[in-house]
């Protein structure tokens, strides 16, 4: 285990995935499991938690959208430049060999679930991968997901420009209606989407793993910014990936979250 200081690593490769998203590759000495995150530090600017989109056993891949001031600076970094990494932190997705799994990814949730799918199919799991986005150009990792064995790729877009016209949750519900049965469902994406998955899974008694994420600072259970009502547990250590039974005990899940000063905001 490394200490909780950022470790400077050099960017080895950068791939432009969508107009906003770039994937950064670098070597890191501690192995990650799907669903875990690292804190990415851009020296002198800021540091943010980012989910790990892939770990091939030597290199990490992080897929990051340039939407805030830190990530916009990051978007100008070149191969050979330094970024700081600490972690990996948090819980992870899990499965039993041979399970039939539904994965519902919204937007940037595609990364950790692509990582989970690639590991799960290696253990003979069968995956239905429901990937949702605003439009075709925002569907992340389509090509990679299509290449996975034992995997059905079921994209959906809000504007109908690719796949199912509507949400990934509606697409999943339609599959269930058609008779698809799942031993487990995993979801990572916008919270209201995950709440919908949680509700359906609960009703249909499907074992579910939900990635519940809150504003995090330290990442190691000290600052308290990511504690959830009313359980009071941190999501950086007790999450982000939680069993549905825990997620459903979190009163604020699907209702509100807190900002950097602890003030509540509704979803």
């Amino acid at each position: 285990m490394l200490d909780n200081f950022p470790h400077a690593v050099r960017i080895k490769k950068i791939i432009k995935e969508t107009p906003l998203v770039r994937s950064y590759f670098f070597e890191y000495p501690v192995r990650a499991k799907p669903g875990q995150f690292v804190n990415v530090w851009v020296a002198g600017i800021d540091e943010k938690p980012m989910s790990i989109a892939f770990d091939d056993g030597k290199n990490y891949m992080l897929s990051i959208a340039a939407i805030g001031d830190m990530t916009k600076v990051l978007a100008h970094k070149k191969v050979g430049d330094y970024i700081g990494i600490r972690g990996p932190y948090g819980t992870h997705f899990s499965w039993k060999p041979g399970q039939r799994i539904a994965m519902l990814a919204g937007g940037y949730g595609a990364g950790p679930l692509y990582f989970a799918a690639s590991k799960a199919v290696a253990q003979n799991c069968h995956v239905d991968f429901f990937l949702g986005a605003r439009s075709k150009q925002h569907l992340l990792f389509s090509a990679q997901i299509k290449k996975l064995k034992n995997t059905r790729f079921l994209p959906s877009t809000n504007d109908g420009s690719a796949g199912f016209h509507g949400t990934s949750v509606a697409c999943w519900a339609e599959q269930i209606k058609k008779g698809a049965r799942y031993a487990r469902v995993m979801t990572c994406g916008p919270e209201l989407m995950m709440k919908a998955v949680s509700d359906i899974a609960w009703k249909k008694k499907i074992d579910a793993q939900i990635s519940v994420e809150r504003y995090m600072k330290c990442g190691f259970g000290i600052c308290g910014n990511c504690c959830v009502d009313d359980l009071g547990i941190t999501t950086c250590q007790n999450g982000t990936v939680m069993p549905n039974s825990v997620a459903r005990k979190i009163k604020e899940f699907g209702a509100y979250h807190r900002d950097s000063v602890g003030r509540k905001h509704s979803f």
């Binding site: 530090w41 800021d46 540091e47 600072k217 600052c223």
Partner: peptide, 25 residues
């Protein structure tokens, strides 16, 4: 009161160093 931006807490086996900047709503 806004706190500082990250990193605000770092730690190893010997010590912790923090400048969260006293954020509060």
């Amino acid at each position: 009161h806004k706190g500082h931006r990250n990193p605000v807490i770092i730690a190893n086996e010997h010590y912790m160093l923090n400048a969260v900047g006293v954020p509060d709503a």
